[in-house]
């Protein structure tokens, strides 16, 4: 579902990401880990179509994100790390706007908004202006927006920022279920605990290059846990 071949991104003379090769199939949850400034957000931004890769190719559901961006984006659900949204819209207006961007018909949109906002516990606040939302509520709203069109691929940059323990628990269950239904999930995170618990595959990036990648069990077979493995490999 997701295939990155020799992907690189150059800012001026500096390669933020270089020669990245990643593959995420249906039903897999890929945890993309790395220290601050390693290139995680740059990678996910290239996958979502926000940034154009300087080299290589990104295929999303078989569509090249650069050559066929509309087709690729229509099957992606993207959750950024800083979920800035339109402060002057209320939650419902924002979700209706997202539904229009994805050309979802009114009935289906209403059904999905009801279903997702109930699940993310923001239904009661839907008619309030977003500027009044707390950080956690914004994050829940951004998740709702990302899932509205039932994406086959979910790209999440730091999924649990702003979420309370109840929210984190609910999200973990939900992502697991989504993967079981056949979605491909790619997420960056600093929470090694979350990655260890949730991910089927792990990739570790440092200074723009992938330093370890593979199935979780395989990678951790010689380590005492993900934290131990992460420290060993990033301090090399």
């Amino acid at each position: 579902m997701i295939k990155l071949s020799n992907v690189g991104k150059k800012f001026g003379d500096y390669w933020a990401v270089k020669d990245l090769n990643i593959e995420v199939n249906r039903g897999e949850i890929f945890g993309f880990l790395g220290p601050n400034g390693a290139g995680k957000s740059t990678t996910i931004k290239m996958m979502s179509g926000l940034l154009k890769p300087s080299s290589g190719q990104i295929l999303i559901g078989g569509y090249d994100i650069v050559k066929e961006p509309i087709k690729a984006k229509s099957i992606i659900g993207y959750v950024p790390d800083k979920g800035f949204v339109y402060e002057k819209l209320n939650g419902r207006e924002f979700l209706n706007f997202i539904a229009a961007l994805y050309k979802i018909d009114s009935k289906q949109a209403e059904r999905k908004i009801n279903e997702l906002t109930t699940m993310f516990s923001i239904k009661e606040s839907l008619d309030e202006l977003i500027e009044n939302y707390s950080a956690g509520m914004r994050q829940r709203l951004v998740f709702t927006a990302a899932l509205l069109h039932e994406p086959e691929i979910l790209l999440i940059d730091e999924p649990i920022i702003g979420l309370d323990p109840k929210g984190v628990r609910m999200l973990k269950g939900f992502l697991g279920e989504l993967a079981l239904k056949g979605a491909a999930i790619f997420m960056t995170t600093h929470s090694l605990l979350l990655a260890e618990e949730l991910c089927t595959n792990i990739g570790i990036i440092n200074k723009g290059s992938m330093i370890a990648s593979g199935a979780k069990e395989e990678l951790l077979s010689h380590a005492r846990g993900l934290e131990d493995f992460f420290m060993q490999i990033t301090e090399k």
């Binding site: 961007l101 008619d127 309030e128």
Partner: peptide
């Protein structure tokens, strides 16, 4: 909490998902 100002024509759009171009313009206007 600050209350949202409603547009005079908003009731015609309520409950309906507008077409892409209209949705972008309504969002900007609001």
């Amino acid at each position: 909490k600050r209350q949202a100002i409603r547009l005079p024509l908003e009731k015609f759009f309520s409950g309906k998902i507008p077409k892409l171009g209209t949705a972008l313009m309504i969002k900007d206007l609001k």
